[in-house]
Design a protein around this nucleic acid. Sequence first.
DNA 1: GTCTATAAGTAGATAGAC
DNA 2: GTCTATCTACTTATAGAC
Lengths: 215, 215
Amino acid sequence: MAKGRPKRADTTSATRNRILSAAAQILSAKGYSETRLSDIADSAQVRAPAVYYYFASREELIAEVMAVGQRRLREHVESALAALPASTAPMDCISTAVQAHLQVELQLSEFATAVTRNLGQLPDDIRARLRDEGAEYIRLWRGLLEAALHAGEMRPDLDLRAARMLVMGALNWTTEWWDPCQGSLTAVVETAQSLVRHGLGFPAAHHGATDLNMC
Amino acid sequence: MAKGRPKRADTTSATRNRILSAAAQILSAKGYSETRLSDIADSAQVRAPAVYYYFASREELIAEVMAVGQRRLREHVESALAALPASTAPMDCISTAVQAHLQVELQLSEFATAVTRNLGQLPDDIRARLRDEGAEYIRLWRGLLEAALHAGEMRPDLDLRAARMLVMGALNWTTEWWDPCQGSLTAVVETAQSLVRHGLGFPAAHHGATDLNMC
DNA sequence: GTCTATAAGTAGATAGAC
DNA sequence: GTCTATCTACTTATAGAC
């Protein structure tokens, strides 16, 4: 309505989205420090001052890229899990989460890539605003591992937090090395799934507790 | 000898080392973009211009921190492997490398941490100079995995490069989350070793030809 | 060797026209 | 809404004294 400050509303402006996408692309490729506001503007086909019509500052713009990326990552993985039958074994849920996480990071969203590659280097005030959403995603993975543990699909000697962070690290680090030109996503996904399944699970196909008996 | 330019020689000057260590500490904690030359100088108890007596520029200083970190990481892991009996099984070598890598990253050297946390965000010209040393370390890990494969200790269905990078990613990402106050290094090391051993290796303790049937 | 003072460059941000 | 022109702040880097 009010024309003067769409700075928060009007999330559907085409120019605004172009600026956001350009920022996500440059952030994911060059990193926080090397991402100039003028580079973003150039890439979005506007002059630098136009950015300030939509965003209060460079920091605000980058903070929004991160917020969008975090949300997309979580929502994509949640959707993939929600699409599974209710009876799906916990370890199969984990495989699905591995696939979904890698797919969104490496193929679907430069916003997600931007988060993973830059979160650790962001100034404290931006990171503080992303904390809650990030904790939500952590919680999702903690739930997945706990379910596997309680179902007797996971070796109980593992430190649950360390295992979770090591797995997420293996996935997140792909953004540092994976190159679409150099290999198929499928190969990475399958190797990651195999690594995580065997890394967390029991040597054989059987288990500790009472439930599920495949043999 | 010549007093005018120790910029390369005199690697043993106490002040020079203080500056280098301060740079490593700040780089590992705050990242490349947030590491100001003046912060480094303050932390090293000198004024900013004094840095230029030892280093040609901020970039040169940071590049040297990275070079030192890369070298220490590789040398520490190589030493740990060299100390093993010649008959050590390949998978046990991998466990040793996992332990050594985590130890130097998380406990021994802020130079190593600085490399891992910043390599991906460095300007191209610095990264180019670190390429050879980095490739050397990659080669070390490739050798470890190939040895395990040839010894029949590793599942042959895994994509070797993907598996290697996923494992190194799990290890490297610890620099993003591990906090000495929040848990023991031993727990992380043991969980990582277990995860890698089972993640790469065969379900049971045997190997090779016709596959296992537990049922 | 290290300092004070300052130059030079760069990037973020604003003013005001259109 | 987007522009040109400009301001301001910050950071690296140098000059030259001690």
